[in-house]
């Protein structure tokens, strides 16, 4: 992995992704121990800066950092001086002055983590910026697919070539989709975007994908169906007539689930809106990896923090020596 920040999946490249996934295996092993903690980042301070609320992602990062024995500082916009009018730059410089090794940044505007790198000496991890990227989500998605493939046997673990993955839904506004397209295609998968034109990015120039508005035409060929959340506010305006029509055209209904290939996997970044992008009963099928994605998020985020902060000489999984 090049650089000391993780702003985009593109910062990693294929090798970087593979390295993170391998490291995540170690943290999965750690999670099974009686004391699921290693001293790798003892003395390091990790700050989570969530300018946009997201309890799940924040908890995942904080758990990941604590398993490495890092100190964790938590900042959220609703409890901060931002409400008193402090600028983003002043906020970052203030937290930087307290001495932190990593800033994990979530913001509703694309590009904020990239801008933050100019105002701090800490490593910056993008925890989701606007409609741009959510690289750790893509890494945990890759990890989850790799894990599921490993269990079904045969295939080399991180080589996704030959795999056809459909990303269904609001690609245009989705940072998860942008990171997943990059990561999955770097690992060799063929990615098909399935959405009405209104929910595709205005230009797919340079995207290693195919696109279609006909879910039924591609459904049977997919190895993974990756459903994106439809935000209710997109419907009833210009982009979608209404959510019922969306469900009828793009929802993973029980009927469609029955036409999936035998070993096809169902994934979703959460939070899932049952009855819109997925039928309630389909979400609970064994093919659905949704809770595994959440579990794996912790391992992958530990791997990212370890990689950025422990450096090449860091001990990966030494035993916790008891005083942490």
């Amino acid at each position: 992995m090049s650089g000391r920040h993780l702003l985009s999946v593109a910062d990693l490249g294929r090798q970087g992704i593979e390295e993170i996934l391998r490291l995540a295996d170690s943290f999965k092993e750690v999670a099974g121990r009686p004391i699921p903690r290693v001293p790798a980042l003892r003395g390091k301070t990790v700050a989570t800066l969530f300018f946009e609320a997201s309890t799940r992602t924040r908890l995942s990062f904080e758990t990941a950092a604590k398993r490495l024995s890092a100190d964790v500082m938590s900042f959220s916009a609703s409890t901060s001086s931002l409400e008193k009018g402090e600028s983003l730059r002043d906020t970052i410089e203030t937290i930087d002055a307290m001495g932190v090794d990593a800033m994990i940044v979530r913001h509703r505007s694309s590009g904020v983590p990239a801008r933050v790198t100019a105002w701090t000496s800490a490593s910056v991890v993008n925890a989701g910026d606007g409609q741009h990227e959510h690289p750790t989500q893509a890494l945990l998605d890759c990890y989850t697919i790799r894990e599921a493939l490993g269990e079904s046997g045969g295939r080399p673990q991180t080589d996704f070539s030959g795999l056809r993955i459909g990303i269904v839904g609001d690609v245009r506004h989705s940072r998860v989709a942008r990171s997943d397209v990059l990561a999955l295609s770097l690992l060799g998968a063929e990615v098909v975007l399935v959405a009405p034109r209104t929910l595709l990015p205005p230009s797919l120039e340079g995207w290693p994908v195919k696109a279609t508005a006909d879910l039924d035409a591609v459904l049977g060929e997919l190895d993974v169906v990756y459903l994106l959340r439809i935000q209710a506010e997109r419907a009833g305006r210009l982009l979608l007539p209404d959510l019922d029509e969306y469900h009828a055209r793009f929802g993973l209904t029980r009927e469609r689930a029955g036409r999936l290939a035998e070993r096809a996997l169902i994934m979703h970044p959460g939070p899932m809106i049952r009855g819109v992008e997925i039928a309630p009963e389909v979400a609970d099928l064994p093919a659905s990896l949704v809770t595994r994605q959440v579990r794996n998020g912790v391992f992958v985020r530990s791997a990212v923090l370890f990689h950025l902060l422990a450096g090449p000489a860091g001990a990966v999984v030494g035993e916790e020596d008891g005083d942490g």
Partner: peptide, 15 residues
């Protein structure tokens, strides 16, 4: 500007 860059950068564009 709405185009390849805006699509990639996740910034809403104006055509």
């Amino acid at each position: 500007h709405e185009g390849a860059w805006s699509s990639r950068l996740g910034l809403p564009g104006q055509p």
